[in-house]
Design a protein around this nucleic acid. Sequence first.
DNA 1: GCCAACGTTGGC
DNA 2: GCCAACGTTGGC
Length: 151
Amino acid sequence: MQYWLMKSEPATFGIEHLKTCPQRTSMWDGVRNYQVRNMLRDDFKKGDLAFFYHSSCPAPGIVGMVEICCTGYPDPTAFIPSHDHYDPKSRRESPSWYVVDVKFKRDFELISLDELRQHAALADMQVLKRGNRLSVTRISPEEWTCILSLR
DNA sequence: GCCAACGTTGGC
DNA sequence: GCCAACGTTGGC
């Protein structure tokens, strides 16, 4: 059982979108970064929990919690030529990219980036480090508990 | 395998 | 829209 933080741009796919999906569950597709791919493919397990983070928006921060529904499987959008996430280098026999399914668990009143930075116990979180570009990062159990205690 | 150029991310 | 940071690409 592991904890994660998953970033998404709310204009593209925010937590409000997730809540309108059937079973409030969606594929987390479109990851095109190898470090994140490796985590989705190798490390994510059914039952893991993740914070849902809104980035590249007026109020960046944690807005909710999701549960991981399955281990990673090949990203089907990479195989569809007309899709925005199409990647001709990804083949069905040797997929380049992976997804997991995530299910909505709960909302938070926004825990802003600024608020996260105010807690020394969270200072090591990758999402707070400058230059961080990973859309998925690990959260330690201590960090998870600390963030939950904020709401 | 080096490294410069380029593209993307994401807070501000 | 700026710009720092850093991943990716491709020539050599």
